[in-house]
């Protein structure tokens, strides 16, 4: 019995050593951290593979640099913790750059997308401005810049709402809206536009909130990696690949900083 135990233990040790070897070897794989429910930047395609603007650009970057791309689905409200724990090499998924990220030491790429927040409502709800939402319920995704705005700069507006409900994904926010549990969803412009186009009966209100930009987050100390990715993106912009990818996503093309 004791012998068997020793053998098993040895086996486990060998396996764990092998596992270590693998991570050291695979320095040319690049693991992209995405929110898998964030169209049109990153979402699951009909073929069961991840797609979206960010995913395609990242794939092009990896092709250029000869890296093997891997995708890791982060839990959006834990994304920085998961980045720190090496589960992914970057967070690249329509991520709003926040001052708090820079203060916490994360390396953030040059911004690539101008974003604003909007309110999505049901077309037949009669809601036309944020003022109409006084006393109503509004949903927002946990961990998004929209949630940050409602708690910070827009807290006066949020105070007029009956309730701000946090969901763990945008699709859940939209389900709540669709099902009549909330009256509006506070969401990033491109996500709202693409949802309203694909589903009947939703309207994006004219008002724009917040002034923010998307960027890619890397761990602190990964300045070189960030530079490599930024340079590769620049090359893609120069050779037209970037534009070609962007043209597949008409909802967001006008706000892409590199194409302006």
């Amino acid at each position: 019995m004791k012998k068997l135990f020793t053998v098993l233990l040895a086996g486990v040790m060998v396996l764990s050593l092998a596992a270590c070897g693998k991570t050291a070897e695979s320095s040319n794989t690049f693991t992209m951290g995405i929110d898998p429910e964030y169209p049109p930047f990153s979402s699951l395609g009909d073929d069961g593979k991840y797609t979206g603007f960010d995913v395609e650009v990242c794939q092009a970057v990896c092709d250029k640099l000869g890296w093997e791309m891997k995708i890791f689905e982060v839990n959006w409200d834990e994304k920085l913790v998961q980045l720190d724990s090496n589960e992914c090499d970057c967070v690249w998924s329509g991520m709003t750059i926040l001052d708090s990220m820079k203060e916490a030491g994360y390396v953030i790429s040059a911004p690539y997308y101008d974003n604003t927040q909007v309110l999505l409502v049901k077309s037949d709800s009669g809601i036309a401005t944020s003022a109409d939402l006084a006393g109503k319920d509004v949903a927002v995704q946990l961990g998004t810049s929209g949630e940050g705005l409602l708690n910070g700069d827009l807290s006066d507006m949020a105070a007029t709402f009956n309730n701000v409900i946090t969901c763990d994904s945008f699709l859940k926010c939209f389900t709540e809206l669709d099902g009549g549990a909330v009256d509006a969803v506070f969401v990033d412009l491109p996500v709202a536009v693409s949802y309203a186009q694909e589903h009947d009966g939703f309207t994006v209100l004219e008002e724009r909130f917040g002034d923010e930009q998307y960027g890619i987050a890397f761990r602190s100390g990964d300045e070189a990696l960030c530079k490599q990715v930024e340079d590769a993106v620049k090359e893609l912009v120069a050779d037209g690949t970037y534009k070609k990818i962007a043209e597949k996503y008409p909802d967001i093309i006008n706000n892409l900083i590199f194409l302006q």
């Binding site: 946990l142 949630e147 940050g148 946090t166």
Partner: peptide, 13 residues
């Protein structure tokens, strides 16, 4: 849920 919200806004554990 609320704990998660606070953790988020403060980037803290």
């Amino acid at each position: 849920t609320i704990g998660k919200q606070i953790a988020n806004s403060q980037t803290s554990f």
